[in-house]
């Protein structure tokens, strides 16, 4: 890897007795987009806030573009664009006034801000709305203004904390079409957290966090490969019977609904046996099998497996229990 723009080593942060981040190391190079995924409370937001200097590290070391976030926090911040989950816009100020405010606080030279504002508004598609009050913008436009504010000072590192949560699919699509060209230039590094697995699939690398630790890391293909040969797809009727029979099979670890199909996670090496056995079982119990075959794992299969692996009390247990008691 070329010199990473984000270089974090053994980050630690506790809030009282809660170890929010417990030894996270990650590196993101220019041109990369790194996706941070994991259950709620895993520590994703805390990592972002440590990297931008909004929170002080208890221990560990982080550099942004070669600047130490502890010793050179101002210089590190100048290189960061940060879009928080709930980003702050001044609703009474116009779009341009908001941008000017962010430009000034992020150290963009005064003589540059007008031309840069126009440029960034063109980029996010808000150029016609420069004089509109932020409070009068639609949700999607506010989000674009949030991104424009984060980018106004030409940061080399972009930290996006669940930027598309609570946003409709059209706006989500628009947002990604703004992020992806930034990577084309090859000199920006992006760290993004997301609850959407389809967005994580777009990242060059993904890190999975759980309980303050980074427990798995790799390209989307590498992560999916960790469950290679262990996912079986099932469709048919009636649904309850399918689930019941699948859960009864000793080699089936989990049964999860994916649209109108089910994904069964199977003990390694047992796929063929499960497919054969389950078909017979379902038919014998009076059910119909439309589809029963091994498939390539999706990222969501991997997410489910990783979320469970270290969380015996995870919500998935409750779901399973509800299935059984139905």
């Amino acid at each position: 890897m070329t010199t990473p723009l984000i270089d974090a080593f053994d980050l630690h942060k506790s809030f009282g007795a809660t170890r929010a981040v417990a030894g996270v190391s990650l590196r993101v190079a220019a041109g990369e987009i790194y996706g941070l995924v994991g259950p709620d409370g895993a520590g994703k937001t805390t990592v972002m806030r440590l990297l931008c200097g909004a929170l002080r590290l208890d221990d560990g070391f982080a550099e942004i573009g070669g600047c130490d976030v502890r010793r050179q926090v101002e210089r590190a911040r100048e290189q960061i664009g940060y879009l928080a989950q709930r980003f702050a816009l001044y609703e009474d100020l116009t779009v341009l006034e908001n941008l000017r405010f962010f430009a000034e606080t992020r150290g963009l030279p005064t003589q540059e801000w007008a031309s840069r504002s126009q440029e960034i508004l063109d980029f996010v598609g808000l150029a016609p709305f420069g004089d509109r009050r932020a409070g009068q913008l639609s949700g999607g436009m506010k989000q674009k203004l949030g991104l424009a504010s984060a980018l106004i000072h030409r940061p080399r590192v972009l930290l996006l904390d669940e930027p598309t949560t609570g946003v409709d699919p059209v706006t989500r699509q628009d947002f990604w079409r703004l992020i992806m060209p930034l990577l084309r230039s090859g000199d920006i590094a992006v760290l993004v957290s997301t609850p959407y697995m389809d967005e994580a699939m777009r990242c060059t690398r993904i890190g999975f966090m759980r309980g303050g630790h980074l427990i798995s890391e790799g390209t989307p293909a590498e992560l999916r490969h960790t469950l290679h040969g262990r996912i079986v797809e099932l469709a048919g009727a009636p649904a309850n019977l399918l689930v019941e029979q699948a859960q009864r099979d000793p080699a089936v670890e989990t049964v999860e609904r994916f649209g109108n199909r089910y994904h069964l996670r199977v003990v390694a090496g047992q796929t063929a046996a499960v497919v054969e056995r389950l078909h017979t079982q379902i038919v014998a119990a009076g059910g119909q099998v439309e589809l029963l075959r091994p498939i390539e794992p999706q990222l969501e299969d991997v997410f489910i497996a990783l979320a469970e692996s270290t969380a015996p009390d995870s919500s998935a247990d409750v779901a399973t229990r509800l299935y059984v008691t139905r």
Partner: peptide, 17 residues
């Protein structure tokens, strides 16, 4: 909104219930 995929699945099981 803003809930992780596993928790969303569990929530939907409650909805079915």
């Amino acid at each position: 909104s803003g809930v992780d995929p596993v928790a969303r699945r569990a929530f939907w099981e409650l909805i079915y219930e």
